[in-house]
Design a protein around this nucleic acid. Structure first.
Lengths: 168, 168
DNA sequence: GCCCAACGACTGCTTGAGCAACTATAACCG
DNA sequence: CGGTTATAGTTGCTCAAGCAGTCGTTGGGC
């Protein structure tokens, strides 16, 4: 039986998607121990790495893969839980900032080391340096080609993310 | 400013996750043109590659990253849309099969070529053969290490998936 | 200065998914 | 057999997320 589904292209996506799913599951488990969902972790991380530990709601939406209404709600929850606060923007009264609170920073600091450890355990540590480099190079190519500019507004902000990651 | 977020591990997951998100977005767009969501496409694909174009609901749940109740509902919708049918299992009256209808097969055949083209365009075609092999090898390692056995019941069925992909 | 388009945030509504509870059937075991 | 336990599928409930519409604010053109 010559099966269309044996196509190596299908296998390739399968691998990428399953690797993603596997890592997501592991990460979620660890994050949940610290009372954070994946989105919440992403939100607090993006905020914490931004100047003043804050971002305007729209910018936050652009950096995460959330719509603006999605951001509104996540921030609602996290504000309720004391991890974030809203702060009015002085020069534009339409905008408001989401700011990480002290409790939020503490939560993040509790969570981060374990998270890095998970990454190492299930991802980067699985490969020797050259193999890892090759993998990352490949991913970068694919990412650059297909990178979102979908989901939320942010046109090529997704691209800017990684440059921001490499360069403070 | 020595930033914790410059950690190469963070960058690595960022790449993998963004590549995944980017591809997902592209694929979803194409699938939507044919009136299929990503899950629906996965469901119909898994069924179509199975003997008799059918699977028991539980097995379907195990192969997709859905809970059994999730499967119930997807199959509900797809049955309503005429892509699938339920068929009673002769020797176990608890079980029932989800079967792809003729209309379902036709829909799949309309969708698949374009889908493969998308994969090539945004993923496999982005890399020369050696780089692609290196990427896939890396992904396989990561996948094998972290592979779900989460989300839905299916313990290591996720592993079985890919062997099934390689071997009809 | 005034009006109108664009923008930022929020809210109502809908959808999709998981969990837990439930029903029906099967299997096991005395 | 008869009863207990496990399994297959479905359903009620909850929750997170997106879309479209709303309201206040801003800025540009005249």
């Amino acid at each position: 039986m010559t099966n269309v589904f044996d196509d190596p292209r299908i296998t390739a996506v399968g691998l990428l998607f399953e690797a993603h799913a596997g890592l997501s599951a592991r990460f979620n488990a660890q994050l949940e121990e610290h009372g954070l969902s994946a989105v919440e972790f992403e939100v607090i991380t993006r905020l914490a790495r931004s100047p003043g530990n804050q971002l305007r709601m729209t910018d936050l939406a652009a950096q995460t893969s959330l719509s603006t209404s999605g951001v509104t709600r996540v921030v609602d929850r996290m504000e309720r839980d004391g991890l974030l606060t809203r702060r009015a923007c002085p020069n534009d009264r339409r905008s408001s900032y989401a700011v990480v609170t002290a409790a939020g920073m503490q939560r993040l600091n509790e969570t981060l080391p374990g998270h890095l450890q998970m990454i190492e355990q299930w991802f980067t540590g699985q490969l020797d340096p050259e193999a890892l480099t090759a993998l990352l190079d490949g991913l970068r190519r694919v990412r650059d080609a297909a990178h979102p500019c979908a989901t939320a507004g942010s046109d090529d902000t997704t691209f800017a993310q990684e440059t921001a990651t490499n360069q403070p």
